[in-house]
Design a protein around this nucleic acid. Sequence first.
DNA 1: GTCTAAGTGGACGCACCTCTCCATTTATGT
DNA 2: ACATAAATGGAGAGGTGCGTCCACTTAGAC
Lengths: 231, 231
Amino acid sequence: MPANSSRLPPAVVAPAGAPGLRADARHNRERILEAAREAFATLGLDVPMAAIARRAGVGVATLYRRFPTRESLVKEVFADQFAACSKIVDDALADPDAWRGFRTVIEKVSVMQVADRGFAAAFLTAFPDAIDYERVRRRAEHGLTELTRRAKAAGRLRADFELADLILLFMANSGIAAGSTEAAPAASRRLVAYLLQSFDADHADHTDPLPPPPPLGLVHVHNVPRRDPSH
Amino acid sequence: MPANSSRLPPAVVAPAGAPGLRADARHNRERILEAAREAFATLGLDVPMAAIARRAGVGVATLYRRFPTRESLVKEVFADQFAACSKIVDDALADPDAWRGFRTVIEKVSVMQVADRGFAAAFLTAFPDAIDYERVRRRAEHGLTELTRRAKAAGRLRADFELADLILLFMANSGIAAGSTEAAPAASRRLVAYLLQSFDADHADHTDPLPPPPPLGLVHVHNVPRRDPSH
DNA sequence: GTCTAAGTGGACGCACCTCTCCATTTATGT
DNA sequence: ACATAAATGGAGAGGTGCGTCCACTTAGAC
């Protein structure tokens, strides 16, 4: 089963299929999105625009007219995946078992990361410029904080766990996703399992406290330093 | 303590400063290597050759004459870092406390990864074509296997740990290194601490066995799928 | 069927990177 | 000081990706 197909519309993001467009244009727009989805997933976020256009069977001009910047394309392509993430968090918050909810969020998002090379990058970059995501991000941060709080209150999550540790995990997992492809799913599962054991209060080592958590928020996560050819 | 500075020469790799060269040429060669070291560390492995040449204060021709391929330059630049890794493993094998040795290898290599963006990439890519490294790699693999065996025998490393889990950790850590730079050292330390707690037999969760380990060897670690513009 | 605005595709200008060629400069033995 | 082989640097050819412009095509209203 590929994804959420006909269920409740992504709602939060995704600005309506494209209202004022001519029928053929709307059709091409869909083809572009699908081609981009494929291309991003397998080749990564920096696949040439021309390659996407070719896969979609359109000229580059069409691509650029519909999506003036790469970022706008990425935003549209991953809108529903981000929506899915929101839903995952909401579901977890609805779970009466706080620890299971916490665990499930991590496991599901990790799977999404390794399943889609582009998503992993988009997820960590989070396009701070894309204001549409700002709300989503903030909401997610609140949800995760609450989830963390509850899991601690339930006594299953170690007290010295911090929100930054979640980012930590997702960054680490993206390292798995970046490497060898065929082994990635298994590798990711194992990494997540290891880390969840460490997060579990029942197995934490309280005689040897963890080093201080990194000052990492969902905002800080994007600064992959672009190389600057000047000097 | 920074590293091994004046102690026993790297020996294993590092093919003599450059014997038959004229004095000025040899000097320039050093400048190139230093410039490359800096550039790789801060900008990553794919910094333009011209930028390295400029930093070194030489023309591109000089750079290309000395190092015909990027790979040859990378190999030379990171030769002593790889040698340092070998030494770390050797030291660990010499440690009577197997668990401490095991732990130290992980901690030290992880630090090297986050300290040098280029090294992290070179380490995981491992340039399978660079035959010089083949020996080093094999030796490292043996050393790590032995280290693992001893740590298990000492009863501190959980029995279901596998060599692949080491790669797992280093790949995960490279995910940290790839992201935000200033927080990377702290993030890496914390990730490593979490994982080491999971690896520790005294805190392992035996009621809920880990998922199967990924089929990952030091050889499999290099296939970051290059994007192919053909379709 | 006709008309027109919407839509299209590919060529093109621009910028960047790789790698080579060659006229000029420089180290070094005598 | 001189001769000469070694070494150099920058120009430029070739390749790739980005984003735009414009002559042509086509959907859809009438």
